[in-house]
Nucleic acid binder design. Structure first.
Lengths: 144, 144
DNA sequence: AGTCACACGTGAGTC
DNA sequence: TGACTCACGTGTGAC
């Protein structure tokens, strides 16, 4: 692209304005080329610049489409992961409630009612064995 | 863009080849314009086409960047969700093991050792009460 | 009228 | 050399 840089010989002439118009067009060609290839020295071939522009726009459009599709799938995966997580949390809560209920029951068993007193030596010994058993259960149930 | 469509007056002339070259350039302008606006009637203004091309390329570049960034964040979120899910699953397994251990202990308590026989009526009555208590605990622990 | 964008043919430079 | 690309000034049609 030859460039007779500089202003017109006779300002106001039609030829001059036509020259300015060409210069503006060429500046836009350069700018487009710079945008298309931010790294390299801009091309000076108008046909090549137009070809590149067509190619790049199509390529970027496809890329954006792919990325949007991927985004959509990732969002769906997140949605399902959150659902699974909530399900696990609920199941965990149920199990925890079960466990606490069992512990509560065992604790109340370990402390007998005040009026309950074995009157016979054999009964007292049996009661001792029962309470010993209950504590061992509690130990087993608390699990560290 | 005025279009003197049709071939040259005198084929082979320089003027004719120059005309063909201009026509090729114009076709590329048209194609670029079509790519830029797939829906509308293509523009015929060369400056406007170049402006649009610059704008669209920049816009698509930014859009692609945003999408890639979003993708990255989504991937990280998925990663952390999976980690949280695994943690919940492990906690659930621990709770389940606890529960089963407690159930096992209670079940073995419910069946006393064969040599264990209360010798006195009061002791027998107390043993009866203990077993009754154990069964009620088991009912409570199994929880439907 | 006058302006605008384009087409045209030609001169000039490059490989 | 010849074919290519670009700049230039002008001609033309549309608004």
């Amino acid at each position: 692209m030859l460039r007779r840089t500089g202003s017109c010989s006779k300002p106001g002439t039609k030829a001059c304005r036509e020259k300015q118009r060409r210069e503006q067009l060429n500046e836009k060609f350069m700018e487009l080329s710079s945008v298309l290839e931010p790294t390299r020295t801009p091309k000076t071939d108008k046909s090549a610049i137009l070809d590149d522009a067509i190619r790049v726009v199509n390529q970027l459009r496809g890329e954006a489409l792919d990325l949007k599709e991927t985004n959509q799938k990732l969002l769906e995966e997140i949605k399902s992961l959150k659902a699974e997580k909530n399900e696990l949390r609920e199941e965990k809560l149920v199990l925890k409630a079960d466990k606490e209920k069992m512990e509560q029951q065992l604790k109340s068993m370990a402390v007998p009612s005040p009026g309950f007193m074995p009157s016979h030596p054999a009964a007292a010994y049996h009661s001792f064995l029962s309470r010993k058993l209950c504590f061992s259960i509690m130990r087993a149930c608390q699990l560290e």
